[in-house]
Design a protein around this nucleic acid. Sequence first.
DNA 1: AACTAAGACAACCGCCAACAG
DNA 2: GCTGTTGGCGGTTGTCTTAGT
Length: 347
Amino acid sequence: MGRTPCCDKDGLKKGPWTPEEDLKLINYIQLHGPGNWRTLPKNAELQRCGKSCRLRWTNYLRPDIKRGRFSFEEEETIIQLHCILGNKWSAIAARLPGRTDNEIKNYWNTHIRKRLLRMGIDPVTHAPRLDLLDLSSILNSSLCNPSILNVSNLFGTQTLMNPDLLKLATAIISLKQENQVPFTKTLQENNLFNYLMQNQVQPVVLQPNDQYQTPLQEGFSSEMTNQLMQANVEGCCSNVSTFGNSQENSIPTSLNEELVCQPNYMYCSSNPTVPDIPESSNFQSLYNSNQNFSFESVVSTPISSPTPLNSPSTFINGGAEDEKESYCSSALFNFEIPDGLDMAEFL
DNA sequence: AACTAAGACAACCGCCAACAG
DNA sequence: GCTGTTGGCGGTTGTCTTAGT
């Protein structure tokens, strides 16, 4: 037969631990070491189940746990790792010495996740949310002022709901998550080449400082660009920029230029759901500092981080919200996963 | 000062892979 | 090979604190 049950759940205490219980647990583990959680409560004279003791030790009492606020670098690492690993809190915690998976998970759910949602970023996919076309605000405005409730006001001269545009936006976003698929193939599969050619859509070259620049060539459709940006897709494609560096993914010469999205384009001041980022914020410097972010830098963060993780000057929690938000996006969209990376090996 | 809402975080719950018997 | 337990993990809940009215 298998092992005997971990513990009899009847009569065991639950809820917050008392200092006396903590002391008992600490003393016992100092003498006998952690492990054998099944017999530990009985031996330590604790009315707790072994699982509760293990959690209390690993999440709170362990001497190597770092308490206190998360530093700027720690949050940066969390976001970047989450983009790669998803909700693998234990894997993320393994890269943040002194932090527990529970602590990171809580911090993500209470701080980072909410901030990303406010910014219109899906905290699960790290992509701008196409489903947030701000219909609610449109409808609210319409309710307050019925005169604006007409099709042209809702959709503009062309339309945010243009299925082709949405397909293009979706294709671009999908490239962020499935970098293996050649860009051209994705366009072809969605019949987007035809759309682009028929509409004489020229390459969209976005530049920092929120707004797209003057079209490079005649025939450029600013409306197209505007709609793409309004459709919340402009920040989705940090990886798309790599297409320009890859022959495999290059756009045919008929389009002349790559469709390039530079990092931080998610900040479109025309988007009512995304706050404007003041130029005085540290966003640009953060953007610059993250330009060369690499997967290796994530993996080696605890060692190679240029500033100590506990650097008091870089605590996230005490900073301005705007700065934190600007930081977040730069961290989100400014790193690349090297070719040939074996994720399974990393995990 | 009292009440309420929101925020923060510790702790619990349930699932599952690994492992012991 | 099967059964049942353990330990680990992610999701969720509960409780305490803080801020706002």
